[in-house]
Structure formats: structure tokens, C-alpha cells
């Protein structure tokens, strides 16, 4: 059996791995009834879910849903008031330095020193993570080449474009080869091309290096890129699964009828229930129905209620539909609407 151990050992050494190898019993990120109370309001309300190794996990929710609070807790910048969160098996509240060593963080706001060069920023970050000398030099060169900025190493950060700065942020988060990468709204301020580059790069990290990536976002189209999603609303988990699974749960198409007012919508909804024996939902001025063969249903409804309908649409379910189905309201709400 010694040979087995040797092989296993050499595998570990060749991959310089203790990350998910050592903590194979633990999910990269585990939340257990995690709550956070700011005193005046409950920002997180008993969240429990696991993030699997080497997946891109999305945290989707509107502003105020608790994403930022969760991000702060996972990045060890704040101690939760209830429950537990573990990264690579370490408790974020009691073993912050263990967690930090395993985690790369890309904050939403820039964290670069603009008076330093790109290389100096990376060297500094490396020093904070206990890297030094030639090893750090090599590592800085590697990550910079990875994000396609090898030729800008000697330039002051203040001379870079927004997209380039974000790439340096990413390189900075990866300098210590973390097994978990946390990104807070990574697409903020990026043009479409730069967004595509970013997502391609995250996939490479996942596929080639087995990095577990957690991304917070309020953008539906960005959430579509994730392997799995947790949808948050008012501090609670409202949905968990892959985008495809979540949308498949809705079944069929989303048919939507726009009317002139919320009252008209309610009348129409009542009419539809009576006539077609389905349960439509009313969202503002609109009546929504989940239905197989949406286009056929649509014509039937329009013929049955002439004049009551302003416009119609039929679509494959989107993540927004998942959100509406689970919460009963739209993704984007005005502050005063939130209470209802």
C-alpha cells in the first residue's frame, strides 16, 4: 500500500495542493443558519447552503437583499451576529486568518494604489499574503500574463483604463493562489467586451485550476453565466439551483398581458381564472401566466377578452420570472413598495 500513498503524495506535491485536497470533507463555502442583524434591521435571515468545489456560484439579488452583507462576512471583514459560515472548513468568525489565506477577494470598489505601478501593487499584495522574493516575482508575472497585462507591469495604475484596473484587481486577488475566489459585482464599470473577457477568465480558473468562484450580482444576464445560483430576497434564500433548473421549474412559457391599470389587471386575472382554470399572477399592470404552448394560449385569451389587453408577450422563463414566482414581486422595487 506504500505505493498508493507515494502516488497520492506525489500528486499532492506536484500540484502544490493542500486546498480542497486536504479539506475534502468540506465544501469550499458552507453557510449554516447564517444571520446578521445591523441592530435596526435583519440583513441576513438564517441562510443555509453549500457551494461545491470548482463551480462558479452566483449570489443574485436586488439591492438590499443581503448580498453585500454576506460578502462582508465571507471576506472576514465583519463578524456575523448569528449562525456560522465556513470557507475550506475554517470558521470566518473565529479563524479569519485561515480563511483569508484560502480566499482571494475582488472588491466592487477599486482597492489599488494608483500611485504605485501595476507590479508594485501585486508585490505589495503578495507581501500581505506571506509571499516574498523570487517566488513572488514569478507569481506576479504569471498572474499578470494571465489577465493579459504583462506589458503594463511598469506603468502607474493611474494610467490604466477602467477595464485594465479591474483586471489588475483580479490579478491581485489571485496572487496567493487561493482555492476560493470571491468577487463583488465584478462587472461594475466594464464594457461588454471586458465583461466577456472576465467571464472567460473565471471559467479558465474553474476548469484548469479548480478554483471555486463566488460572484455577487444584481444583473440577470450575468447570473445566467453561473453554474449554480442562490437567489436572495430581503435576507432570505428564495431559490437555489442552476439557472436551467430554476427556469425549468416554472414549466412552459411565460405569457404576459399588459393592461391599463392594476385594477384592470385584477379583473382580467379573475376572468382568466374562471375561463381557463389557471392561476395567473398580477404584477403591477400586468397579468402573468405560466403555460405550455404559450402562443396558443395567448391567442385564446386575446380573443376571449377583446379590448382589455394593451399588449402581450410570450417568452421562455427568465431568472426574473423565477424571482417573481418565488417572491411575488418584481426584481426591482422602489423602497416604499418593498414592505408589501
Amino acid at each position: 500500500m506504500a505505493t498508493v500513498q507515494q502516488i497520492a503524495q506525489s500528486l499532492q506535491e506536484s500540484s502544490r495542493s493542500v486546498g480542497s485536497g486536504e479539506f475534502s470533507g468540506h465544501a469550499p463555502i458552507e453557510l449554516d443558519r447564517l444571520s446578521h442583524d445591523y441592530g435596526s434591521r435583519l440583513a441576513l435571515d438564517g441562510l443555509s447552503f453549500d457551494v461545491r468545489p470548482a463551480e462558479i456560484f452566483g449570489l443574485l439579488g436586488p439591492n438590499g437583499s443581503g448580498k453585500t452583507t454576506l460578502f462582508r462576512i465571507l471576506s472576514t471583514l465583519m463578524v456575523p451576529t448569528g449562525g456560522q459560515a465556513h470557507i475550506a472548513g475554517f470558521d470566518v468568525a473565529t479563524e479569519p486568518n485561515r480563511v483569508r489565506q484560502q480566499t482571494g477577494i475582488v472588491f466592487q470598489a477599486t482597492s489599488l494604489d494608483v500611485k504605485l505601478t501595476v507590479a508594485e501593487n501585486l508585490m505589495h499584495q503578495g507581501h500581505l499574503y506571506g509571499l516574498r522574493g523570487a517566488q513572488l516575482q514569478t507569481r506576479a508575472k504569471d498572474v499578470l500574463a494571465r489577465v493579459g497585462l504583462a506589458d503594463r507591469a511598469r506603468d502607474l495604475v493611474e494610467t490604466l483604463s477602467g477595464g485594465q484596473k479591474r483586471r489588475v484587481e483580479l490579478a491581485k486577488g489571485l496572487i496567493h493562489s487561493p482555492s476560493v475566489l470571491l468577487l463583488d459585482e465584478p462587472s461594475t464599470g466594464l464594457d461588454p467586451g471586458a465583461r466577456i473577457d472576465l467571464w472567460n477568465y473565471l471559467r479558465i480558473l474553474r476548469d484548469e485550476q479548480g478554483v471555486t468562484v463566488l460572484v455577487t450580482t444584481h444583473l440577470m444576464e450575468e447570473a445566467e453565466h453561473c453554474d449554480r445560483l442562490a437567489i436572495l430576497n430581503a435576507g432570505k434564500l428564495v431559490a437555489l439551483g442552476s439557472p436551467t433548473e430554476l427556469k425549468a421549474e416554472i414549466g412552459g412559457d411565460i405569457v404576459q398581458f399588459e393592461t391599463r391599470s392594476p385594477e384592470d389587471a385584477k379583473t382580467l386575472a379573475a376572468g382568466i381564472t374562471q375561463r381557463f382554470a389557471v392561476q395567473p399572477s398580477v404584477v403591477g399592470n400586468a397579468v402573468r401566466v405560466e403555460r405550455e404552448h404559450g402562443h396558443r394560449f395567448l391567442t385564446e385569451v386575446v380573443e376571449a377578452f377583446p379590448g382589455a389587453i394593451e399588449s402581450v408577450s410570450v417568452a421562455k422563463p427568465s431568472l426574473e420570472d423565477v424571482f417573481i414566482q418565488r417572491t411575488g414581486h418584481r426584481f426591482w422595487l422602489e423602497k416604499n413598495e418593498e414592505k408589501s
Partner: peptide, 20 residues
Amino acid sequence: ATVTVPTRVPTNAVSKSTAT
């Protein structure tokens, strides 16, 4: 003896010596 090899071996985790 068969050795199960994880399909995706993380090549990136930090060595333990730097964890202090």
C-alpha cells in the same frame, strides 16, 4: 491498487507554511 484521482486537482492552493 487503484488510485482515484480527482478529475480536477487544484494546482493553486497555498502551501501550509505561508498560512501563519
